[in-house]
Design a protein around this nucleic acid. Structure first.
Lengths: 338, 338
DNA sequence: ACAATTATTTCAAACGTTTGAAATGTTGTT
DNA sequence: AACAACATTTCAAACGTTTGAAATAATTGT
């Protein structure tokens, strides 16, 4: 409809005043006459004036945009974490651009470069599985743009800000819970070995065993790369020795736990009903299962996201020095079902 | 580290040439000497020059950004749809800003305004449950920015571009499937009445009944607002009359179907095992249920997203006239389990 | 040696906004 | 009437880029 875009200049011409008066009127400068402000604001409303963010960003050298790079949006962990980020970001006048890497390093680099060009004021990133070189992310700090690593631990990157789930504590607590329920043979089904969390959780598991004088057996530990076949073969190994049958299982992630449960049920494992399961995730679906796990480890992703954005905004506001690297751990909570 | 930002001007000074030469060299203008181009590009690489998108946008009056407004990211329908959008958008040089409305009209308006300020080149929107007035979205078209409504039907808005799931066809197919399996008493559990799809699906249901000479009974239709209590009371109504017991059920959405199934099982409904269920969604979780539904209606959200972005880009490129309103329907697919 | 031609570079304005400094307008005081 | 004191508005530069027109440099033909 409207051909001439409504700019300050356009308003100024209509009102027969200078561009700067219009600008200052809209920004409520005290030096501008009240009546003038009224006229300007009214005209701006009537003509649907919308300030051009590109122009403002250029002038202010600030984009009011926070970038998020994460592996994908199908994982509820990440979408829940965004909830925490978005809420706090919006409250503080920031918009959020989300970019999925699909766990592909190339896409992560692409996303990083596009966010760099967009001059985001800060970046929150959950790195891809394959990120070992950080140069595409270091660019931000080199330009003075703060970066907070979250959800996934960039262990190859020593000096950086991190907000992570306290996965050690989560797994410790779950294992302890099972020990307290009398289990002596607790299996640990880990995720891919290349993910740090796999080891952190294993450490939680083994520390809980040690602290409570439960003997460790390597036969009770197996790993899967999340692939269903792979999970089943891991489970087969865990339940291979009749002398050393697990009575409980701690799983890296609920989906693989469900695969494990389904498999054990399908082969009519004699002790299926007696085995107690705990996994990371706290999926809402659990309530629909006929034999639900005894407990879940809630990772509080919203809180991880919220802590990440809070830290990032402090860094942007220079309340914390860019190189005073922070590390935050967000505790997990054991949810006992039923 | 770097205080002076690396701009074209900075490069130009370093290289002792004019800003325009540098700009043209980087953009590979044919009038620029090959050797000059080399020198410029090398210097740009060495100093990590990153063009400032705000400046470019301002100059070009194009943001290369597509905005998406949707209710939330916890619903897999939407995250799957984003997958389709993102892929095609990136291929065509567009970035995507996603904004959640949380089904709150106020937040939707906020999101719209922020995307308007960002001068997105196009908008894809799944409206909130409460959107009846479209002025916040009409602003885009008034500025010449195309809008594609998708996933949720803006039935109060007559002239607009739409890409929707063919929910009528999906429900028809599911009902027909159950009829073909011999069912005569098929219940329909609908969603909130204020959602259009509830009625479209009901129409699919009833048309399938009529086309196949299965008598309709209003006792076999109930609605829920997705709340668990509400779903249970709907189910109680459906199964209230012993003379008119459903033997199959078509549900608006799998989660409410699971609630229904859980309830029926919990009261030990005598025919629980015989009842056959079909719902919209095709959740991956189904495989973990002990008594899974017989089939699911796959809504192909990726395809809905892909069609939306394709249409939007055609509109942006003016291959389709802004006011030549398009309506696309993406068919559902019945997935029979087991 | 000097136009004519072609290759290459630079100028300058523009995009829409912000903002300190300068200019102008209005009162009040003497 | 002169002018200080304040209120209000305007000027002008800047942010980083693009781009057609103008300027300059290099090459060619005669």
């Amino acid at each position: 409809m409207n051909n001439t875009p409504v700019t300050l200049k356009f308003l100024a011409e209509k009102l027969k005043m200078s561009v700067s008066t219009v600008s200052k009127a809209l920004n409520n400068y005290p030096t501008i006459n009240e009546y003038t402000k009224q006229r300007v604001q009214e005209m701006a409303r009537d003509l649907h004036f919308t300030p051009n963010k590109s122009a403002i960003n250029l002038k202010e050298k600030k984009s009011h945009i926070i970038g998020i790079i994460l592996p994908n949006l199908l994982d509820h962990y990440f979408t829940r974490s965004i909830y925490g980020v978005e809420q706090f970001a919006t409250q503080n006048g920031y918009n959020v651009i989300i970019s999925q890497s699909h766990d592909d390093l190339k896409k992560e680099i692409q996303s990083a470069n596009m966010l760099l060009r967009s001059r985001v004021d800060g970046l929150i990133v959950a790195i891809s599985k394959h990120t070992q070189d950080f140069s595409h992310l270091d660019q931000f700090e080199n330009m003075g743009t703060p970066v907070v690593y979250y959800a996934r631990n960039p262990s190859f990157n020593l000096s950086c800000h991190k907000v992570l789930g306290n996965t050690f504590q989560g797994c410790y607590q779950a294992t302890k819970f099972l020990i307290d329920r009398g289990h002596k043979k607790i299996a640990y089904l880990g995720g891919p070995k290349m993910i740090n969390f796999t080891h952190d959780r294993f450490n939680g598991y083994i520390n809980a065993l040690n602290d409570n004088q439960v003997p460790f057996s390597s036969e009770l530990v197996a790993y899967t790369d999340f692939d269903k076949e792979n999970t089943i073969s891991a489970i087969k190994n865990l339940f291979a020795n009749p002398e050393n049958m697990p009575t409980a299982l701690v799983a890296f992630k609920e989906p693989i736990m469900f695969d494990a449960m389904k498999y054990l049920k399908s082969i009519n494992h004699p002790d299926f009903d007696k085995i107690e399961y705990v996994g990371f995730g706290n999926t809402s679906f659990i309530s629909y299962l006929d034999s639900p796990p005894i407990a879940s480890i809630e990772e509080n992703p919203e809180s991880v996201g919220e802590n990440a954005i809070k830290l990032l905004i402090q860094l942007i506001n220079k309340e914390i020095d860019l190189h005073d690297y922070q590390k935050l751990m967000v505790d997990c909570k054991l949810i006992v079902h039923g």
